[in-house]
């Protein structure tokens, strides 16, 4: 069992948990992920590692309540335990050769972009961190983000923080204003990563995206996480999760992401009824 030693609600949909998992903490690196299972009946769900403390033997995850299992995870409290917590899985993000980077995080992607930006910043790279939220109340990790980059640009969809627009627009503006990047790293919803990749393609700026498809084992066994990258089939769990954004077939990835949507809805119905005890 893997005890939850800290829980922090970051905003109405996003929660941070620090979980005791010494075997994972020992080797974890930015860009890698874990798979957790809440209980014996639970499904295996991948989450990117948001942080780790090798000495304490803990791993931090940040998740958004987007589905049945993440809703259920959010009901757990400090002192509760997860049934399973395995990792670190996937390849760590590459930091070599990156000197001037724009790291883009959208939505929950912000939580994943944070450790990557920090790793680059710690390695001496100049990092512009561009993150986006729907409104100012949803802004998370502001202090941490500030400390992990050279420039922090926070965008909101509704402009409630005084900076209206999407992360792609902010990136476009940065480039138009003469900022030069050797690498753009985009992490977040598929349409956002696709848009960033399309924008940087004609500019020939190396663009790395972090893919988070449906998977079961996370070790290469099920092949459920397969993607087409540069015309070849790749497994996000062992070949990724980071890929060249100019080579990823995003449309296919988006279609595959919709495969279990009706089943997800069914599971959520069950969840509602378990929580409220009401008959449906």
């Amino acid at each position: 069992m893997y005890p939850i030693i800290r829980k922090k609600v970051l905003n109405e949909t996003t929660t941070l948990m620090e979980v005791e998992a010494p075997l994972v903490a020992r080797k974890a690196r930015p860009g890698q992920f874990i798979i957790f299972r809440i209980d014996e009946e639970g499904e295996r769900v991948p989450l990117t590692i948001a942080g780790y403390d090798r000495e304490k033997g803990t791993v931090t995850i940040i998740f958004q309540k987007v589905g049945y299992t993440t809703e259920k995870l959010d009901t757990l409290q400090e002192g509760d335990s997860l049934q399973d917590f395995v990792g670190p899985l996937g390849e760590p993000s590459a930091t070599e050769g990156i000197h001037r980077a724009a790291v883009i995080g959208g939505g929950l992607g912000v939580a994943i972009a944070y450790p990557q930006a920090k790793a680059l910043h710690d390695a001496g790279a100049e990092v512009d961190l561009i993150v986006g939220f729907r409104n100012e109340h949803l802004i998370i990790l502001q202090e941490e983000l500030q400390a992990a980059c050279t420039n922090l640009i926070i965008m909101t969809d509704d402009g409630s923080n005084g900076n209206k627009g999407f992360v792609t627009q902010a990136l476009e503006k940065q480039i138009r204003d003469g900022r030069e990047y050797d690498t753009v790293i985009a992490i977040g919803p598929l349409p956002m990563m696709k848009a960033v990749s399309e924008m940087t393609r004609p500019l020939k700026i190396r663009t790395i995206v972090s893919m988070n498809p449906i998977m079961i084992d996370g070790t290469g066994m099920c092949g459920g996480c397969r993607l087409t990258v540069g015309g070849e089939t790749k497994f996000a769990c062992v070949d990724g999760p980071d890929f060249d954004g100019h080579l990823v077939d995003f449309d296919e990835a988006m279609a595959r992401g919709r495969m279990f949507r009706p089943e997800e809805a069914r599971a959520r119905e069950k969840h509602t009824c378990r929580l409220t005890g009401e008959a449906r």
Partner: peptide, 18 residues
Amino acid sequence: LTRLNLMKAYTFPEHDTP
């Protein structure tokens, strides 16, 4: 097979994996 055997998807939604 993993969905069915290991994750017991044939009992979905009793088990969470579809």
